[in-house]
């Protein structure tokens, strides 16, 4: 088990759990973050900037603080 924020560029995994308050949880699920869905980390911005994540055919940018709420199972 790893946090999404800990993945390296190019690494992929499956969402195990999302531990976020309601507003963040809703926002995440609206964009397709659901338990069991595969995702991959495309790249990280410099200077601890946001992450570029691919979920199915959707590309999403989110900050490290929010990515820390998502647990993934890396393959």
């Amino acid at each position: 088990m790893q946090l999404l924020s800990q993945l390296e560029s190019g690494q992929s995994g499956i969402i195990l759990a999302i531990e976020a308050e309601e507003s963040l949880f809703h926002r995440l699920s609206a964009l397709g973050f659901r338990v069991g869905k595969p995702l991959s980390l495309i790249r990280r911005a410099n200077f601890n900037g946001p992450l570029h994540v691919r979920l199915g055919s959707t590309d999403i940018v989110l900050r490290i603080a929010d990515a820390m709420r998502i647990q993934v199972n890396t393959r």
Partner: peptide, 10 residues
């Protein structure tokens, strides 16, 4: 801002 910064990259 209370809204999380999560954007879709189209």
């Amino acid at each position: 801002s209370v809204e999380p910064f999560i954007l879709e990259l189209p």
